[in-house]
Amino acid sequence: MNIEEIARRAGVSRSTVSYTLSGKRQVSPATRKRIQDVIDELGYRPNASARALAEGRTRTVGLVIPPAGKRLTHMQLDFVAGVVEAAARVDLDVLLSPSGGDHDRSFERMVFESRVDGVILMEIRLEDARIDRLREARMPFVGIGRPSDDEQMCWVDVDYAGLISHCVRHLADLGHRRIALLNRSPELLASGYGPAHRARSGFLQAAEEHRLQGIELPCGDDARSGQDCIARLLQAHPEVTGLVTVNEAAMPGVQRAVAEAGLRIPHDFSITGVVATHWAEDFRPALTAADVPADDLAARAMALLNERINDPATPARHVLLSPPVTLRRSTAAAPSRAAGDGVPGA
């Protein structure tokens, strides 16, 4: 079944059927209904390639994710689900494309073979070659995250530096004088991964401002790495009483390491950070944290991308979200072993 047969049965021209399907020109309500009745009767579905040629659009957007061989964190999966849901609300499909290493061929095919109308980039580095490739292809795109030079790019992001600073201040207000940052993996830091570098910046600045001793711990994105990192920390620095984290995937291991050291959360050791909501609520005790609004970020990214697809000349827009730090039960006043414990040189 094709457009020509629909036109014959509806008693209209082929172009009228095409205009009805694409919405490019006005068709009278009576004619549109006659055509739609035939379509419904025959169960016609337009061929995607033919529709793309007719409309000049694929009605598909690309979502560039980390390499498929690596396990995605729950927060990353929340972003993926949020983008898919937001795209469905505006009748768009989503093509997932991993990037990084050998996977860059998938990214190149998606962009330069016109498989999508626009792209959402995840996991953006401070210096990110993919951004240059998208500009070269004149492909509309939006970032979940942002590079260091972000003025000409549309993006949505979480204020990691500001939120980590709030977490440090919260611990300082509770009397903690020696604290640590559980950051993302050494590999991500070396690659220039934006959230990890901004978390580090916010942590170090806030520690200096509040005259705290701050220790940074790069940590792999898994429970075993979290357990090993915290075990080493508590052995080398038993004076540390508070932890700030942006590494949600390591949290189960953090919990085990603290328990194995004979410490109780929050009586002996306080933990806070920036994580997805379900990680905070599933932690025991529930984690005091800034909950990353993944659904909201994804929906805003999709709205910005749709805007740029419809009008590529739209000025670049930036959305920086700073959710509140929700007080739960994983933080408390510094334990007596830290009472009156000043920072050397402070």
Rank of each mutant, 00 (worst) to 15 (best):
residue 113 E to Y: 09
residue 127 E to Y: 13
residue 109 R to F: 11
residue 120 I to R: 00
residue 110 M to T: 00
residue 86 A to W: 02
residue 117 D to Y: 07
residue 123 E to T: 08
residue 125 R to N: 15
residue 111 V to T: 05
residue 92 L to A: 02
residue 86 A to N: 05
residue 103 H to V: 02
residue 100 G to M: 09
residue 81 A to S: 15
residue 116 V to K: 04
residue 114 S to F: 08
residue 73 T to V: 08
residue 95 L to P: 07
residue 111 V to W: 00
residue 86 A to C: 10
residue 119 V to D: 01
residue 74 H to Y: 12
residue 95 L to Q: 12
residue 102 D to M: 12
residue 95 L to S: 06
residue 79 F to N: 04
residue 96 L to E: 00
residue 109 R to S: 11
residue 88 A to E: 11
residue 78 D to A: 14
residue 79 F to Q: 02
residue 111 V to D: 01
residue 76 Q to V: 06
residue 75 M to A: 07
residue 102 D to A: 14
residue 71 R to T: 11
residue 83 V to E: 04
residue 117 D to S: 06
residue 81 A to E: 15
residue 116 V to Q: 02
residue 91 D to H: 14
residue 108 E to I: 12
residue 84 V to M: 09
residue 105 R to F: 07
residue 122 M to P: 02
residue 73 T to G: 14
residue 90 V to P: 01
residue 122 M to Y: 07
residue 105 R to E: 12
residue 78 D to E: 15
residue 105 R to L: 10
residue 76 Q to C: 05
residue 90 V to S: 12
residue 119 V to K: 00
residue 124 I to P: 02
residue 130 R to S: 08
residue 88 A to I: 03
residue 102 D to K: 11
residue 128 D to N: 11
residue 107 F to Y: 03
residue 119 V to P: 01
residue 109 R to W: 05
residue 95 L to C: 07
residue 89 R to D: 14
residue 128 D to A: 07
